[in-house]
């Protein structure tokens, strides 16, 4: 399946300095009933974003018109809990292309990478720098350069790690399944011998 290609992104960012944001917060279970990948964005952070009678929660950052952009900056251990890929779909569908945190849960990180959302791991210190910069001036632009694996804000920058294979996939819009399908014969032999 062709996916978006990712090389460099310059955008304003949305701060969400909460730790251990689990996938039940990103997309609550009751919204997992769709059978397609689209439309999950409207329920992203549903129970933090809206009251039980569907009114926007005023002090939640996604309801604050000052903040916007394609980058979400969140506290450590982002995406823990359930393996629901719907969390990555919701983040993508809402319009985010990058999530920055000082630590990601494993399954979420994989799911994000499989859906053209780049998880950028930064140091605690750089995370604080980013959050402060955005909170002080919501118009602050953050640059995420995948080719050079570098994230920058206000002239300060930090290198980030990404698996070389996944980097290649993101840059070219490749899918894991393309590679696996190319191994069909070898897998068939393995299955028979097993």
């Amino acid at each position: 399946m062709s996916k978006d290609k990712f090389t460099i992104l310059k955008s304003t960012a949305v701060p969400l300095p909460v730790e251990n944001i689990d996938t039940d917060q990103i997309i609550p279970a009751r919204f997992l009933k769709a059978t397609t990948r689209e439309g999950f964005g409207e329920n992203l952070f549903r129970d933090w974003r809206f009251t039980s009678d569907n009114q926007p929660v005023k002090d939640f950052v996604l309801n604050n018109p000052a903040f916007g952009g394609k980058i979400l900056v969140a506290g450590k251990n982002f995406g823990c809990g359930s393996s629901r890929e719907h969390a990555a779909w919701a983040i993508y569908d809402y319009g985010f292309r990058v999530v920055v945190s000082s630590f990601f849960a494993d399954i979420f990180k994989n799911n994000a990478l499989n859906n053209a959302v780049l998880p950028v791991v930064v140091s605690d210190k750089f995370l604080q720098t980013l959050l402060e910069a955005i909170q002080q001036n919501p118009k602050t632009e953050v640059t995420v350069d995948l080719i050079n694996q570098q994230i920058s804000v206000n002239g300060k920058s930090e290198k980030f790690e990404i698996n070389a294979y996944k980097k290649e996939c993101l840059i070219n819009g490749y899918d894991d399944i393309d590679y696996l399908l190319s191994l069909n014969k070898e897998i068939r032999e393995f299955d028979l011998a097993h």
Binding site: I177, L180, I187
Partner: peptide, 18 residues
């Protein structure tokens, strides 16, 4: 171990996972 839906598709299609 648990996997996401893209990986469910990979396993259905190829019986393998990366």
């Amino acid at each position: 171990f648990g996997i996401g839906t893209s990986e469910v598709e990979q396993v259905l299609a190829t019986q393998c996972i990366l």
